[in-house]
C-alpha cells in the first residue's frame, strides 16, 4: 500500500511503537483500534486480524 508505520500511526492517533507492537503480535489492539485499522485499509476486522485463542 506504500504507507509508512509513522503515517499509519499518525492517521490512527497512536504511536509508531503501538503499530510495531501490533504488527509483531506483542500487543493486542483494542476493539476500537482494530476497527480503525480495518477501516483504514477498507477491510473487515476478520480480514486484517487473525484470532488465536491461546494468545
Amino acid at each position: 500500500m506504500g504507507i509508512t508505520q509513522d503515517e499509519l500511526a499518525r492517521t490512527l492517533g497512536v504511536t509508531r511503537q503501538t503499530i510495531i507492537a501490533v504488527e509483531k503480535g506483542t500487543y493486542c489492539a483494542s476493539l476500537p483500534l482494530a476497527h480503525k485499522i480495518a477501516a483504514f485499509f477498507g477491510e473487515s476486522i476478520e480480514n486484517v486480524f487473525i484470532f488465536e485463542e491461546d494468545k
Binding site: A9, R10, G13, V14, T15, Q17, T18, A21, Y27, A29, S30, L33
Partner: peptide
Amino acid sequence: FEIESTDERNIM
C-alpha cells in the same frame, strides 16, 4: 504529545 498521552498501549 496528545498522541503519546492518549495512546492505548502507553496507557496500558
